[in-house]
Nucleic acid binder design. Structure first.
Length: 690
DNA sequence: CGTAAAGTAAACACCT
DNA sequence: GAGGTGTTTACTTTAC
């Protein structure tokens, strides 16, 4: 009967979710398109040098537009109210935005949004302005190109001569910073565009069957610019090939990818091609030489496979392809990794959205008195045909687009099948259970958790790991490889936004799992009890058998034994579970955590550098934290306690004696009533089978 | 469709 | 007695 009520709650939750998405969806989609397209240039303004220029442009355009609008209103009597009404007639602006994506400023977009319907005259003006802006942009392009070349030159000089006048160095540094900034923005933009594209494939947009990317890629790039860009890039790649200098190569690639809006089309496609189906939108791309193509494979760079966490060295592109096909074939693991990557991308999108919003707010504040600076609270609701606009208010302000706020019915990516790549899989609502982390035990789980720490910390997304793997991770992350229950709780809440709700449920689940899983071993000392993990057992993934005697029976003879000698259990388990393996496990854990973590930046997409560094920081912080302060922020145990219980009185006789952590002591101490424990320990095979 | 695993809820016991 | 902890059971959901 309690269960029934639980079920009711659940279904209510889903009902709310489902009900919420209806009305605003179209509107959201449209806004999404408009904003995402329209704000593209503002992303590029991120770099200081360009910012000024473009801001002026934007301001100018905005003024013109305002003027135009006023005239328009006077003439046609059209009143342009502050658009708080939900009139969903955004199709026109959308298509306008599709036509003029690149150079429309946020101000313009706001005007459009506010006005919603444009007259032909306005359209014309817009187009004209866009053309003018395109020209200006072209000039900027050239300016930037020159800058690039200059930088290249300087870098080369620097490398060859080793010395450089101070001023020059400063200039170069500035330019570098500038370019890096630009690159960053560009890459965020790419991610965004990619998602847009993906979304465009998946969400049906009435009257807009074309992908958003297509007009973006083609419409915003004048052919001259493309040509220019091509020249620039090819000259750079030639230089790279010639110099074959890695340090300069890095820089030049940076320059290349950061250098221009027109690059977008060239960059996007390699990314798109990872999905194997999104790659053929730009004819330009096909004109690239094969070599260029191979060099631009997003999963291959600098002779290294950039599959997340892989980094296999591949001599040439061919061997890379071989490697890719053999090591990263379509299987559960790759699929899972892909999904994780997807979540990373979403996180980036979220970030981009936030930054865009911030930018817009800044610009609004500086230039335009916008009536609705927060026209779209979730501007980049890319993932979400299912998204709940309604819950935006109750969710955390930064809640992910695809994040449901109903914890009982989380939206979680699906594991089943090879179709993970589809974005639709992200739309699943319901308590989907992912078990891959237990199937492919350690690597995916740890790596994924580590790689997505930041994501799960902020997004109320149910992590795709079982409770058991998470508990294990929590324990292994602690310096002593042991945590109290409360510390485990804290780890969960700290690491996963999802577990900041419904505490009773998941805490109960944790306790159940701790009890149920063989791999979790409860250890007692004078100060209380804590949990350790037997990794071998974890990999076996077995549960305590139902109907079996308890692992720990306080009221039985064993309990008495323990009462007499509280350190008994501890010693028992110490001997196997974490004594010897402690260091090894620590190292393993470190390796699991940090290696994939530290290589995140090379996960085939340098965009993740930020995320990676953030996570690195996070991890380092966590490590420092745990090292200095015990394992957790929990007040449950003092550092002294944390150190205390490891009573390493004797190294285990046999490190590879996997089967009998307790056997030594239990055979020595066990009472007749304690046979089950001996069974449990001595005959794991039978136990496992039942 | 059957089964195993995972998740959820609840009952119960012990301890502080 | 309340609340935390730990164990067990029953049931549902999901994946295989």
């Amino acid at each position: 009967m309690m269960q029934e009520s639980g079920t009711e709650t659940k279904s209510n939750g889903s009902a709310i979710q489902n009900g919420a998405s209806g009305g605003n969806h179209l509107l959201e989609c449209s806004l999404r398109e408009v904003r995402s397209n329209g704000e593209t240039p503002s992303v590029e303004i991120g770099a200081a040098d360009l910012a000024h220029l473009q801001q002026q442009q934007a301001l100018q355009v905005a003024r013109q537009l305002l003027l135009q609008q006023q005239q328009q209103q006077q003439v046609s009597g059209l009143k342009s109210p502050k658009r708080n009404d939900k009139q969903p007639a955004l199709q026109v602006p959308v298509s306008v935005a599709m036509m003029t994506p690149q150079v429309i400023t946020p101000q313009q977009m706001q005007q459009i949004l506010q006005q919603q319907v444009l007259t032909p005259q306005q359209l014309q003006v817009l187009l004209q302005q866009q053309q003018a802006l395109m020209l200006q942009q072209q000039q900027l392009q050239e300016f930037y190109k020159k800058q690039q070349e200059q930088l290249q030159l300087q870098l080369l000089q620097q490398q060859h001569a080793g010395k450089q006048p101070k001023e020059q160095q400063q200039v170069a540094t500035q330019q570098l910073a500038f370019q890096q900034q630009l690159l960053q923005m560009q890459q965020l933009q790419q991610q965004h565009l990619l998602s847009l594209q993906r979304q465009g494939l998946l969400t049906i947009q009435p009257g807009q069957p074309t992908l958003p990317l297509q007009p973006l890629a083609q419409g915003m790039i004048p052919t001259e610019l493309q040509q220019l860009w091509k020249e620039v890039t090819s000259s750079h790649t030639a230089e790279e090939a010639a110099s074959n200098n890695h340090s300069s190569l890095d820089l030049s690639t940076t320059c290349v990818s950061s250098s221009a809006p027109s690059k977008t089309s060239l960059i996007i496609n390699p990314h798109a091609s990872t999905n194997g189906q999104l790659s053929v939108h730009t004819p330009k791309r096909e004109s690239l030489s094969h070599e260029e193509h191979s060099h631009s494979h997003p999963l291959y760079g600098h002779g290294v496979c950039k599959w997340p966490g892989c980094e296999a060295v591949c001599e040439d592109f061919q061997s890379f392809l071989k490697h890719l096909n053999s090591e990263h074939a379509l299987d559960d693991r790759s699929t899972a990794q892909c999904r994780v990557q997807m979540q990373v991308v979403q996180q980036l999108e979220l970030q981009l959205a936030k930054d865009k919003e911030r930018l817009q707010a800044m610009m609004t504040h500086l230039h335009v008195k916008s009536t609705e600076p927060k026209a779209t609270p979730q501007p980049l609701n890319l993932v979400s045909s299912v998204t709940l606009s309604k819950t935006a208010s109750e969710a955390s302000p930064q809640s992910l687009p695809h994040t449901p706020t109903t914890p009982t019915a989380p939206i979680t990516p699906v594991t089943q099948g090879p179709s993970v790549i589809t974005t639709t899989s992200m739309h699943n609502v319901g308590p989907i259970r992912r078990r891959y982390s237990d199937k492919y035990n350690v690597p995916i789980s740890s790596a994924d958790i580590a790689q997505n720490q930041e994501f799960y910390k902020n997004a109320e997304v149910r992590p795709p790991f079982t409770y058991a793997s998470l508990i294990r991770q929590a324990i292994l992350e602690s310096p002593e490889k042991q945590l109290t229950l409360n510390e485990i709780y804290n780890w969960f809440t700290r690491m996963f936004a999802y577990f900041r709700r419904n505490a009773a449920t998941w805490k109960g689940a944790i306790r159940t799992n701790l009890s149920l899983h063989k791999c979790f071993i409860r250890v007692e000392d004078e100060f209380g009890s804590f949990w350790t993990v037997d990794d071998e057992e974890f990999k076996r993934g077995r549960h305590i058998q139902r109907g079996r005697p308890r692992k720990y029976c306080p009221d039985e003879n064993f309990g008495e034994l323990v009462a007499h000698n509280p350190s008994l259990i501890k010693n028992i388990q110490t001997s196997h579970t974490y004594c010897t393996p402690l260091n090894a496990a620590l190292q393993a854990s470190m390796a699991e955590n940090s290696i994939p973590l530290y290589t995140t930046a090379s996960m085939g997409n340098p965009t993740l550098g930020n995320l990676a560094s953030a996570m690195r920081e996070e991890l380092n912080g966590a490590m420092e934290h745990t090292n200095s302060n015990g394992s957790d922020s929990s007040p449950g145990r003092s550092p002294m306690q944390a150190m205390h219980p490891v009573h390493v009185k004797e190294e285990p006789l046999d490190p590879d004696e996997n089967e009998g952590p307790l056997s030594l002591v239990t055979t020595a101490n066990h009472s007749p009533d304690f046979d089950h424990d001996r069974d449990y320990e001595d005959e794991p095979v039978n136990e496992d089978i039942e």
